[in-house]
Structure formats: C-alpha cells, structure tokens
Design a protein around this nucleic acid. Structure first.
Length: 153
DNA sequence: GCCAACGTTGGC
DNA sequence: GCCAACGTTGGC
C-alpha cells in the first residue's frame, strides 16, 4: 500500500528544480527524531510532497517518490558537514536518510497561506500553526487533493 | 530581524 | 523525572 508524505527543504539549499536536474538525491540532514521515524517508515514507491520552506512563497512545489528505503545518514558522522552530529558513531549513526526521485513539478507553488485557508485540508500538519516538523505523513485524500491543486496552475 | 512554538540538554 | 535555559525552525 502506498503511503504519502511531506518533506520540507529550503530551496536555497535544495529545490525541486535541483531534484529534477539530479533525477534523484539522498534526503540528508533530518535531525529530529519524529521526522527521522517518518523517514524510517517510508517504503519504496511511497509518494512525497516537496515543500519549499523559507521561500517566496513558502509552499508545495511538487512530488517525489521514495527510491530507496532508510539507510544511515552518514553526513552525521562527517565533522565537515553542516549536518554533523558529534553524538553519532559508525556503530550507531542515529540518523537516517532515504533516496528520493523526481516525479513532477507543480504548475505553481501552492502557498502555505492557501493550505491554511482551505477547509478541505484541515489536519494537514504543515498547515498547523507553529509546525516545525520537516517530515510528516499526509493522508491519501489530502495528497490527491493537493496534487490536483498543484497541477491546475 | 522578530518571535512563536517547539525540541534538546543538563543540573538537580 | 522535573524543568529552566538554550537552540532551532520557519513564518512573517
């Protein structure tokens, strides 16, 4: 059964356009346990809404697919990485990563203001006030609704 | 730059 | 185990 997810990325760091160019990428740098647990629950073939945070505007930019299920996020072990975690060890890297592949870029970014204002999206985690979780599950109904919205342009 | 809403750390 | 202090995320 396909599961649906949402993950945030700052487009200045990694955007959906970059993912399209790269084809696929390792989703690194998640340093929050709840978000990490979502990464670990992802299955190959699951679909992911790509959210641009700290952007103009912030909002949903497209869709990606899980290509490879969770594996250790080795950037946590690299002292030169901005994602370095001094508590991570080779025996217990603590953090996880998944490989995601590009699926589509929306005809437009669906801005956060719109997500918050839409009664059909009640309960969507990213639209909750003060939501900081960078990886969250999304219901199937919300996912399909949002893809339709994004394709409309 | 401000600040709300967290999560994490560490003293006790 | 409690909780204050601190750090981070991310909208605005």
């Amino acid at each position: 059964m396909t599961q649906y997810w949402l993950a945030k990325s700052e487009p200045d760091v990694y955007s959906i356009d970059q993912l399209q160019k790269d084809g696929s990428t390792g989703w690194e740098g998640v340093r929050n346990y709840q978000a990490r647990n979502s990464l670990r629950a992802m299955k190959k073939g699951d679909l992911l809404l790509f959210y641009h945070s700290n952007a103009e505007p912030s909002g949903l930019a497209g869709v990606a697919r899980i290509k490879k299920e969770a594996f250790p996020d080795l950037s946590a072990l690299d002292p030169k990485s901005e994602y370095h975690d001094p508590k991570a060890t080779a025996e217990d890297p603590r953090w996880s990563s998944v490989e995601v592949e590009f699926v589509e870029t929306f005809a437009r970014v669906i801005p956060l203001t719109e997500l918050k204002a839409d009664p059909a999206l009640a309960g969507l985690e990213v639209a909750r006030k003060g939501s900081r979780l960078s990886v969250t599950p999304v219901s199937e109904a919300h996912f399909h609704y949002l893809v339709k919205l994004g394709r409309k342009g």
